[in-house]
């Protein structure tokens, strides 16, 4: 499994120039006053992971990977682990960047950075959890539409929650205020584990 994670990291490393340009563009947007780092780290890590699927598919890596020891199981597990790795790294990078800019601009708000960072982690967990089984079933090229559906679904759910939030009782609100982060974190982890099991099931049956 470590080998396959390395393979994804090499893809990212060898594609670093493109990614740095993307990062730079985001950083410029960021300095223009919009400090929504959650959105940027989310978008960055999703694109990075999607690119590894695209490179795999272009050279039909899956059939070859199946011939490796424990190939089928490892390719699924390694994608999920690589995703977690990438999302943590990009969230950290973005947070550091925001902190630096906060210091420069003298408007540092650590609390906002932390909640934004967690928001990013949770939303990528959920988006990827929805689309990975689709990718493993149909391949990345056919799943792009699924990606958009996934993002809209998540955005929709959050929008719905925030709308419904108006009608929440004070006690529920205080629970959300105090434990919201924990509740969301735990449920996103649960969703990801479920997603992994579904993907594995799909992949073990798949033919190439």
């Amino acid at each position: 499994m470590r080998g396959l994670i390395k393979k994804d990291l090499f893809i990212i490393k060898n594609n670093l120039r493109t990614l740095l340009i993307m990062f730079a563009i985001f950083a410029i947007i960021l300095t223009n006053g919009n400090s929504n780092i959650g959105f940027i780290a989310t978008f960055l890590s999703i694109s990075i992971m999607m690119s590894t699927f695209s490179y795999d598919e272009y050279n039909k890596f899956d059939a070859f990977a199946v011939t490796l020891p424990n190939g089928r199981k490892n390719i699924v597990a390694s994608k999920y682990l690589a995703t977690i790795l990438i999302i943590v790294i990009s969230t950290l990078l973005m947070s550091i960047l925001t902190i630096l800019m906060g210091i420069v601009r003298n408007n540092l708000n650590i609390e906002e950075i932390i909640s934004s960072g967690f928001g990013c982690l949770i939303s990528v967990f959920i988006v990827q959890s929805i689309i990975y089984p689709i990718i493993f079933k149909f391949g990345i090229e056919k799943s792009r539409i699924g990606l958009f559906v996934g993002i809209f679904l998540v955005a929709g759910i959050f929008a719905l929650i925030s709308k419904l939030g108006i009608h929440l009782s004070d006690s529920t609100l205080s629970i959300l205020n105090n434990y919201g982060l924990i509740i969301f974190s735990i449920s996103s982890v649960v969703i990801m584990v479920l997603s992994y099991l579904v993907s594995k099931h799909i992949y073990l049956k798949k033919e190439f």
């Binding site: 470590r2 080998g3 390395k6 090499f10 893809i11 490179y55 050279n59 070859f64």
Partner: peptide, 24 residues
Amino acid sequence: LDNSFFPEILLVKDIDSVMKSIYK
């Protein structure tokens, strides 16, 4: 295999590093 191998964006030496962690 016919037409199925590592993603072509990898360097040749990357294969060594990956396979080292795969085959005993």
